[in-house]
Design a protein around this nucleic acid. Structure first.
Length: 108
DNA sequence: AGCCTGACAGATA
DNA sequence: GTATCTGCCAGGC
């Protein structure tokens, strides 16, 4: 097949790639939506967000945050509890993860 | 087809 | 620091 192979790959394949990676994020570490897309070399941050919105409950979803280290309003409470439990650097005042201290690059 | 929405992100003011 | 705008791309109507 000529070119258009590396396209936005939607569908179950992309979903599984995302969920699979999120499951590999170590405790006390996080990745941003953009990091996930970049690491997989597929899709965009926005698409990753769409997957999380639909299937996030199946994985440690609090380990994927936006570029500011935050999650939408309705999830912050649950997320905070998990950060506290696993020792993720979390700013309770601003309700956001301090990415500088726990961003995961995919390596171990 | 068009228009809007969304667990996003970078640039700019 | 916050607010806005633009680009992004899939899905729903």
């Amino acid at each position: 097949m000529p070119d258009s192979v590396h396209r936005s790959d939607d569908t179950p394949a992309f979903v599984q790639l995302v969920l699979g990676l999120v499951r590999r994020i170590p405790a006390a570490k996080v990745m941003t939506y953009g990091d996930v897309a970049e690491f997989l070399e597929r899709g965009t941050a926005r698409q990753v967000g769409a997957v999380m919105a639909g299937y996030g409950s199946e994985v440690p979803w609090w380990r994927v945050v936006n570029a500011s280290g935050r999650l939408p309003e309705h999830l912050r409470g649950e997320a905070a509890a998990n950060y506290l439990a696993e020792g993720t650097p979390y700013d309770l005042e601003r309700e956001k993860v301090r990415l500088a201290g726990c961003r995961w690059d995919g390596s171990r």
